[in-house]
Design a protein around this nucleic acid. Sequence first.
RNA 1: GCCCCCAUCGUCUAGCGGUCUAGGAUUCCGCCCUUUCACGGCGGCGGCACGGGUUCGAACCCCGUUGGGGGUACCA
Length: 507
Amino acid sequence: MELNSDLMHTASAPAVRVRFCPSPTGTPHVGLIRTALFNWAYARHTGGTFVLRIEDTDPARDSEESVRQLLDALDWLGLDWDEGVGKGGQYGPYRQSERMELYADVAAKLVAGGFAYESYSTPEEVEARHVAGGRDAKTGYDGFDRNLTAEQRAAYRAEGRTPVLRLRMPDEDIEFTDLVRGKVVFPAGSVPDYAIVRASGHPLYTLVNPVDDALMRITHVLRGEDLLSSTPRQIALYRALVELGLAERVPQFGHLPYVMGRGNRKLSKRDPESSLFLLREQGFIPEGLDNYLGLLGWSIGPDRDVFALSEMAERFDIAHVSPNPARFDLDKAKAINAAHIRALDPGDFAERIVPIMHSAGLVSAPTMPALALKERRILTEAAPLIRERTVLLGDVPTQLSFFFTPDDAVPYQDSALASLGGDAAQVLAAAQAVLEAEPADLDAPSLQQVLRAALVDGLGIRPKVAFAPIRVALTGRTVSPPLFESMLILGRPSCQTRLRTLSTHLA
RNA sequence: GCCCCCAUCGUCUAGCGGUCUAGGAUUCCGCCCUUUCACGGCGGCGGCACGGGUUCGAACCCCGUUGGGGGUACCA
């Protein structure tokens, strides 16, 4: 019997703690959400803890509205968190705006311990030194202020300068094993001493993010590839925090591939498919989006790509995440979404289409119980008919609108009218005669049978041609849900009026 | 300039040295089913970036090249 390596791992290592730490700027982006999904999946797979922290250190760009949207998004997608904003926990507060004293305290300790220092050089001065030294102007900070004496610092202050705080990068290679990319090495000297606190005293992301991860005892940092090159800086900071007794250990890092848009660019806010809420408005369902996003950099198995969130939690393994960038393909996303819609049970599907039918102005209320009886009946009966024809919930109103139009005012599409052959009038008349003569309680197959007998056998018209005028009469279109089932939902009087109306229209 | 990452059908991926004349999904195109459209079924087009190694054997390991991306801020 083979030992489960995951179990062995969790038995010897501390319990997994991962986090999702968005900045509340703007509406949720699918790249961001994919990161949340993978963190969630890793936490659930390992039985670990999923922490939600809000990185709101930029009052100019952050908004409470954005925080709300973030929570809404996670909630909608079924990505629940165990600790953090809205949940509490022993490492709070979980909003960085409420942790400012903590950062000031840590920064002071870093300086006192010699891990960070005051730097008075302006960017212009640094650049001038590079140029004078024959180096490229874009070379980073040169470490000029590393060993300033107290007298020198006092002199700068006397000039009215206020220093930024920089972390002293160790003069050695920094290497780590990335969970998705393997060993990564940054040569000594390739990462300059970097600013952790502004001259104004405002702490920077470079300080605040690792400090919180350390204080919150995060064990695995799974984040976007864009942060890969800042990892050596964070590791250096972490090591300092460990020496100061503020962190237990350096966490493991895993850098998730980019989610790309058109061309060779990262999916940006400008791309419409990047907005989670826009996708939701179009009629993606959470099951579909979770699944599709899960496919961006991860695979559940060789011959499968439709799965439930719970299966992802069961099978997700960070080691099997692909390191290369994934393009967001709307066609594939739709196909996955359609598969999940088809898998919905009809009652569930019926309930989910109510809000969108309401937005389209076709029904009177946004929820099933609030609907008029007749509306509820139509939606419930029509839902199974269109479920397998629906890729996005947004496709539903056009498919069902004919059920909700007055019988004598069905809007005919020009192309539908144009498609009608010369025998349309004859067909319409024959169909009316059939409805007149036959009992009212026919089921769909029987209805088909009698109409077929009259039109195909009786008039000698091919089925494909024979039923077209009826479809146009009832729906105004050449494409519709199954005809006979639709007739039953409309009811005989409606059908008769609609047949008669088109006859008149054609005459 | 310097540092880092990436490289299998158009796209997402499986592949972790022999089972690969490279599998699945999506898209597109046929055919079947069929009252339309879908669903479903069947079939087709289409790929290991290039060059060197290592090895009996390489899509898989190493090096290089090329191509893409990111970083190099008192942004996050």
